[in-house]
């Protein structure tokens, strides 16, 4: 159609189904079990806690996959899918037994792999750092009362005496009297955990989302590794000596 004959209001539908991201998503084993057509009934949206507060709609997720438009999929992988709380209410209520939550999970993995997730996940850098370095994902220190006005005024009062409360609560439990992490894991545990991060390739994956973070953490990890390995050698030598 020539430019001048083009209807100024109505867009012509041109299918762009079958693009790279669409194919990657359809390859995932979960999709077949998670999408059996969609009645557009809205049960999922009505039950979805994310849809009540954010720009997210599980129904739209299903419709988007059915339509398969490449541009829309890319846009979703960069943004909206990260609003899902993975509560699976959609799955347990959908009259077609669809699971937008599973589709979202598959899309998130692909988004990470394809380098589309960095912007959406930037806010989670602190959490990722804590997981990589301490093995916890949340710490009492991270919950500043200003960020959670919905927790009410008592939150302000309580957060001023976090340390005292924890000491009282966890008296006799070593490792719990900390507020910069949920609990203090032993050095050797952290060393083992970080070894798993590295050898499983998880660290590399995290690096695609938080490249700077991994650079920082890597140094820390290398130091810890040297220290732990020296200590292991020392212990081994002692053991050998005692045998003789």
């Amino acid at each position: 159609m020539s430019e001048e004959n083009k209807n100024p209001i109505t867009d012509a539908i041109e299918s762009t189904k079958g693009g790279h991201f669409y194919k990657e998503i359809m390859k995932d084993f979960r999709i077949k079990e998670s999408l059996h057509g969609c009645l557009n009934c809205g049960t999922c949206v009505a039950n979805c806690p994310a849809a009540a507060f954010y720009d997210y709609s599980p129904r739209e997720v299903c419709q988007m996959i059915i339509e398969g438009d490449e541009e829309t999929i890319e846009e979703y992988m960069k943004g909206k899918i990260w609003n899902c709380a993975q509560c699976y209410s959609c799955k347990y209520r959908c009259p077609k037994e669809n699971s937008a939550a599973d589709i979202v999970m598959a899309m998130r993995e692909i988004a990470v792999r394809e380098g589309l997730a960095a912007e959406a996940l930037a806010g989670y850098t602190r959490i990722a750092k804590l997981v990589l370095t301490r093995g916890n994902q949340l710490a009492p220190d991270m919950l500043s009362p200003d960020a959670f006005p919905d927790w009410g005024p008592r939150m302000i009062e309580l957060s001023s005496k976090k340390m005292e409360m924890r000491e009282e609560l966890f008296e006799g439990f070593p490792g719990m009297n900390v507020v910069d992490r949920a609990w203090a894991a032993e050095d050797y545990t952290i060393y083992e955990m970080q070894k798993i991060w590295e050898e499983s390739g998880a660290l590399e994956k995290v690096g695609t989302v938080f490249p700077f973070l991994v650079d920082i953490v890597q140094d820390d990890m290398d130091d810890k590794k040297d220290e732990m390995e020296a200590r292991i050698q020392e212990k081994k030598a002692k053991l050998e000596a005692s045998k003789k």
Partner: peptide
């Protein structure tokens, strides 16, 4: 146009959830 999804009782009043699709 939206399927009734959930019914709760709030202050002795029925409250329903749905999506206006």
């Amino acid at each position: 146009r939206g399927r009734g999804a959930e019914v709760t009782l709030k202050n002795q009043q029925l409250s329903l959830r749905a999506e206006e699709t």
